[in-house]
Simulated scan of single mutants.
Amino acid sequence: MKIRPFILAAVIFGLSGCSSMYYGTMEKLGVHKREIMVDRVKAARDTQNEAKEQFLTAMGQYKRVVNFQGGDLEKEYDRLNATLQRSEAKAGEVRARIRSVEDVSEALFSEWRSEIKHYTSDTLRRSSQQKYDLTKQKYAELITAMKRAESRLEPALVPLRDQVLFMKHNLNAMAIAGLSRELISVETNVDELVNEIEVSVAQADAFIASLENE
């Protein structure tokens, strides 16, 4: 969905106002909940991909510190700390994107359930119910995958936070050498996060395709 210039104000309003008022305003402007849902799933997918790349960058930076062979140790700390802050920010963005998907999906499915009752044709009612059930099932698979990926964010961040904090107060080569003991744990957590994100992204692609092909 391409957001037309004249509805930009409505978009801004939706970010600060309540969801129901936002969706109602967008509906009047010709932008339906299904379109908003597709857009938000795409945004969540893209943000998860960005988070994957950010955490892989953090992993690389951590390895660089562990393999420190001399130079300006404080600069290495500053780089790792900056990488951690970007990782924290991206994790927060992933969480927000998932919440926005949940918000619009709740509104969409609630409206859909209500409207199914209004059919006078049994055939059309059954057809709409079948589409609802199938879409709801696919959505459940999607949000489950997204939340599994989200659940791996904090475990990946915790050891990075610990090591940055440790470095802050122990800027010497001997202390840095001790960080190597945590390398396997850090790698494992990041690898698990990356795997879950890739599953979630694949689910998002499948869900988007199912909605766009209807």
Rank of each mutant, 00 (worst) to 15 (best):
P5M: 01
V11D: 03
F13V: 03
L15D: 13
S20Q: 11
S20V: 13
M21F: 09
T25E: 00
E27N: 09
K28N: 09
V31C: 10
R34L: 13
E35Y: 06
V38F: 06
D39Q: 06
A44N: 05
A44Y: 08
R45I: 02
A51W: 03
E53I: 12
F55H: 04
L56Q: 15
L56M: 15
T57H: 11
A58I: 11
M59R: 15
Q61S: 14
V66A: 11
N67W: 12
G70W: 08
G70P: 05
D72T: 03
E74W: 00
Y77N: 05
Q85E: 14
S87P: 03
R99F: 11
S100C: 04
V101Q: 01
E102T: 10
S105D: 03
L108T: 07
W112N: 10
R113L: 12
K117Y: 08
T120E: 13
S121C: 13
S121A: 14
R125D: 05
S128H: 13
Q130T: 11
Q137L: 13
Y139W: 07
A140Y: 02
K147H: 03
E150I: 01
E150W: 02
S151R: 07
A156H: 02
P159M: 02
L160H: 02
R161C: 02
Q163V: 06
V164K: 01
N170L: 04
N172K: 11
A177R: 15
A177L: 09
G178A: 12
L183N: 04
S185H: 05
V186D: 04
T188A: 11
V194I: 13
I197F: 12
V199P: 00
D205F: 02
